[in-house]
Design a protein around this nucleic acid. Structure first.
Lengths: 228, 228
DNA sequence: AGATATGAAATCGTATACGAACACTAGGTC
DNA sequence: GACCTAGTGTTCGTATACGATTTCATATCT
């Protein structure tokens, strides 16, 4: 299965350093929800928990800030970044663009076995709809697209996709939970996308489909909030 | 005129801090070419030059690393990042995507006065062709697109555009210099793009045109290197 | 001579320490 | 009672110090 730990930023240089360790530790806890949005990240406390000094922790926090996972205020401190409706819109819109591009760029390199694997993941997602397992659903959704992106010829774009996913992590399964029916649609769109790729469709058509797949989720959210 | 100092990353939080000062100072010198690719960035030396200690400098360097402007190797140090043909391809491809999207998203908000300003910049660019002033040409090129992006409704995408531009800064005017005729084409494409926007064309058409405008430069480079 | 080992110099990575800025409470004043 | 003010505690920002690692030059061995 594709590794959805979500590779760090382009800069993974200093592996093994305490700063690196702190970065991964804090990131993990943000992405998996241990630290919720708004949680106050006190340098000294994190340093003590990890058994290191504040300097590497500070560096780690600043890196997470650059990725949008924490917000930093001078002389005040860091808090786990939430994602307000505006930020959500920006992030989803950007994701629709970069995911569309990543899918289109990868499509010529996607083989029958990849299609089969992706389809199998999608069927698992369908099963999640029955059991109502939104957390697993979200994870499988990333797996699905990760399979398609495995051979993406442009790592920069892939990196942007991963950043967007991390940015959305604080929402967990909210779109799944709050927009009923969207998850079902999503599974169908996945299948349609696979067939499009399988049929050797034009890259532009694949890009459009992949982009719409993401923006439909955004639209579903927008139209719902408008109706309330 | 549009400010092409190229806004920093989303995180401009700690304005006024020494770390911030160091960040801007080093970034400026990388972007304007004072530090060429491969230049060894020694923390202690930069710290002394700026009159601060190494800790904030280190933080600044790590931020620049995250933006791809410097490469960092553990226990060895930082060097100004070069851009090899592969990186160039990745960056240009990504730029074509995000610039295309930024242009399309901005287009409904571009008014007649914006068009006029952009056209005036483009005419300056045309003049640069006569005087053969590649550095100014590159700068004006950014100005041109900055005018179009001024009202971009998605700051995330704009940020990606700026990052790409910074990343290419180390090349200076190489595309202009090495692909004769491309600059001329570029000016013509700008004018065509303006007319497309002015005519109220479909966002999809505008996006395609803007994307091709960037990828044509990449293609020109690729076909030239192939011929050698 | 070429390759390998050894030492010194340079540079990084992190701990510790301390001054500075902010938040919050308590007390006083109108 | 509401508002302002002083004081205290918390947390950040940066300087300094030192051990760890790499690099480079020199010496030694085959």
């Amino acid at each position: 299965m594709a590794d959805t730990t979500l590779a760090g930023p382009s800069a993974a240089a200093t592996a093994g350093s305490k700063s690196e360790q702190a970065y991964h530790a804090v990131k993990k806890q943000i992405v998996d929800g241990t630290y919720s949005p708004g949680y106050r990240l006190v340098l000294a406390k994190i340093a003590e928990d990890l058994g290191v000094s504040v300097v590497p922790v500070r560096e780690a926090i600043r890196r997470l800030e650059a990725e949008g996972l924490v917000t930093f205020e001078r002389n005040v401190g860091a808090t786990v970044a939430g994602i307000d409706p505006t930020e959500y819109l920006y992030t989803m819109q950007t994701l629709s663009i970069v995911e569309g591009a990543a899918t289109a760029l990868s499509s010529p390199l996607i083989g029958p076995d990849d299609i089969a694997r992706a389809r199998s993941v999608n069927e698992e997602m369908r099963a999640c709809l029955e059991h109502f397992d939104p957390v697993r659903f979200t994870r499988l959704n990333q797996d699905f697209h990760s399979v398609l992106f495995e051979n993406c010829p442009n790592p920069h774009i892939l990196d942007l996709v991963h950043r967007g996913w991390n940015r959305l992590a604080s929402l967990r399964s909210s779109t799944f939970r709050f927009v009923p029916g969207r998850a079902q649609e999503s599974v169908e769109e996945h299948e349609a996308l696979l067939q499009l790729i399988q049929s050797g469709a034009d890259a532009a058509d694949i890009e459009r489909a992949a982009r719409l797949h993401r923006s439909a989720t955004l639209d579903a959210y927008l139209s719902q909030t408008k109706n309330i």
